[in-house]
Design a protein around this nucleic acid. Structure first.
Lengths: 115, 115
DNA sequence: ATCGTTAATCGCAAATTTACGATAAGGAAT
DNA sequence: ATTCCTTATCGTAAATTTGCGATTAACGAT
C-alpha cells in the first residue's frame, strides 16, 4: 500500500498535483526565488541555503524533474536557471484551478449552506 | 534527521509551501473540485472518490488543517464546504509567487545566460 | 599525470505520507 | 435501550521524503 493512486485521477489533476508537490517545500520555493533574481551557479545556491550541498542537489533535481528549472554545464560547474515556459505553464495551471473554484462559487450558494 | 528545516526559511515561504503541499495530491485537488461545485456531505465525497472512506477522511483533514475547507455538523453527518476566504488567500499567495518570478525575469537576462 | 574544485550520486537514518480495514464515537430512529 | 448510519480515529504496512556525510565523476589548472 501507500502507493499513490494517481491512475485513478485525471491526467490534469495528476500533473497539477505534481507541480504543487514540487512547490511544497520552502527550500524549493527559496531556490526558485533565488533563480528569479538571476541564473546561478549551483554553488552559489548552496551558499545561500541553510541546507547541505547534497540536500540542495536533491531539491534541484526535483525542480528539474517537473521542468521548472534547467541546468547547463559551464566548465566544471553547472549554471541553473528557470525555464520560463514551464513557469508560465505552471502559473496557468494554478490560475485555472483557482478560477474554476471561484467560478462555481460565484452564486454564493455555498455560504448559505455551510458558512 | 529528515525533520523539515522550516525554521530556517521565511514565514511566507513556509506558509506558501504548506499550502502547495496540501494541493500536492490529485485526490485533494479532486475534493476541492467537487466542493467547488457545491457543499457536500462527506459520504457523497467518498462515493465520488476512488479511495476508501478512511483515506478520504484523512485528505479532508489535511485540507481542513490548511484552512481551505470547513466541516459543519449536520445531524449525524458532516457538510463540507470551501472556505472561500482561505481559497482567495491561497490564490493570492500563488499569484504573488509567480508574479515575483515573472517580474525579475522581464529583462530576458536569464535566457541570455542559460537558455 | 596529478591536484583541486564542483556537483551528482550513494548509503543510510528518521520522519512523513499514503492507504486500508477495523474500531470507536456520535446522533437519529425505532 | 437498541439499532443503524455516518464519519473520525486507531493500528498497521509500505512507500516516499528529507537530510546528511562520504564518495564519485568530470572538468580545469598546474
Amino acid at each position: 500500500m501507500a502507493e499513490r493512486k494517481t491512475v485513478e485521477f485525471s491526467e490534469d489533476l495528476v500533473v497539477l498535483a505534481d507541480m504543487a508537490k514540487a512547490l511544497g517545500h520552502p527550500g524549493r520555493l527559496e531556490i526558485l526565488r533565488i533563480l528569479a533574481g538571476r541564473a546561478c551557479i549551483c554553488g552559489d545556491i548552496v551558499d545561500r541555503m541553510p541546507l547541505s550541498q547534497s540536500t540542495v542537489s536533491q531539491h534541484l533535481k526535483e525542480l528539474k524533474n517537473v521542468g521548472l528549472i534547467r541546468g547547463e554545464i559551464e566548465g566544471p560547474r553547472i549554471c541553473y536557471c528557470l525555464d520560463m515556459d514551464a513557469v508560465v505553464n505552471a502559473q496557468k495551471g494554478f490560475v485555472r484551478l483557482f478560477e474554476g473554484i471561484a467560478l462555481c462559487n460565484s452564486g454564493g450558494e455555498i455560504n448559505e449552506k455551510c458558512g
